[in-house]
Amino acid sequence: MQIEDKISMHAFMEFIEMNGHAAFIWSSYGIVIFVLIWLFIVGVQFQTKSETKLSQLNPRPRHRSGVRSERKTGKQNEA
């Protein structure tokens, strides 16, 4: 291993270890990022679910969900 590699490896390990407080720092960042992504997914799922429900109830095309509702009702008519 080259000396520079050793130094950079050492710096990297130092960064990961965070001076002995690694567990506290990385877990708090991990929790925040995980929870924020989870909440975002919940929001997107809620939007899709309620817009699909609306397009099934309401055959008239309206704004965004209108495009989808036209397609959906078309399928229903074929069936």
Binding site: L39, F40, F46, S50, K53, L54, N58, S65
Partner: peptide
């Protein structure tokens, strides 16, 4: 992040409110 997710949630809520009215 708040603005972004708020708008997504709002779309859901508006659709949901319309569903209630339609039902």
């Amino acid at each position: 992040y708040y603005v972004w997710l708020f708008l997504i949630n709002m779309r859901g809520e508006i659709a949901e409110a319309r569903c209630r009215a339609l039902q």
